[in-house]
């Protein structure tokens, strides 16, 4: 087995220095090493987007990134987006518009949706659907997710 490497990754504003195996995926680093279990794993071919986080401000599927590759990066997970007392407008939108059912895809979906609004603050319905097409949801049929993103766009999302 390969040598372990030390990585320094800032997650939700806090610096973490950890020894990791080179093959450790970022999503497992977040979940197993840091206990941030809000980021989920829904597939093993990077199709579903349940593991979406932000790396240096842009959304990324954390199952396709090794922890070692994220060395020196700033990572934001769903836990860093907002709290129950202080929800991010996108989280608020998902709650108001029933943008989730089982909730498993939701953290990744929210991270992608925030990224979408960062790039395009006033998307059309079509642009929203295309913007979240990398995230699979099996429960909602996406309509209420589209409304959730529209709600957040209406409120104006700041990063």
């Amino acid at each position: 087995m390969s040598e372990k490497a030390t990585v320094s990754i800032t997650v939700n504003g806090k610096v973490h220095e950890e020894e990791v195996e080179p093959r450790l995926l970022l999503v497992h680093f977040l979940r197993e090493h840091l206990g941030l279990t809000g980021t989920h794993v829904g597939c093993d071919t990077s199709q579903c987007g349940a593991c979406t986080v932000h790396i240096d401000g842009a959304s990324a599927k954390s199952c396709t990134v090794f922890a070692a590759q994220a060395d020196g990066s700033e990572v934001t997970t769903i836990e860093g987006v907002g709290s129950q007392d202080n929800l991010h407008p996108m989280q608020e939108g998902f709650w108001e518009e029933h943008g989730l059912q089982c909730g498993y895809c939701t953290p990744g979906m929210i991270m992608s949706a925030i990224n979408l609004l960062n790039e395009n603050p006033k998307p059309t319905e079509k642009e929203i659907r295309e913007g979240i097409a990398g995230n699979l949801c099996r429960c909602t049929g996406y309509q209420h997710i589209v409304k959730a993103v529209q709600y957040a766009a209406e409120k104006g999302v700041v990063r």
């Binding site: 979940r31 206990g35 941030l36 279990t37 809000g38 980021t39 989920h40 794993v41 997970t77 769903i78 836990e79 987006v81 907002g82 709290s83 129950q84 929800l87 989280q91 998902f94 709650w95 108001e96 029933h98 989730l100 909730g103 498993y104 939701t106 953290p107 929210i110």
Partner: peptide, 21 residues
């Protein structure tokens, strides 16, 4: 009525089986 379940789900604080330690 807005769902009671959602706050924990949208903030990443729900506990699925794989989250158990």
């Amino acid at each position: 009525i807005k769902r009671r379940e959602d706050p924990r789900l949208i903030t990443g604080h729900a506990t699925y089986v794989d989250d158990l330690k």
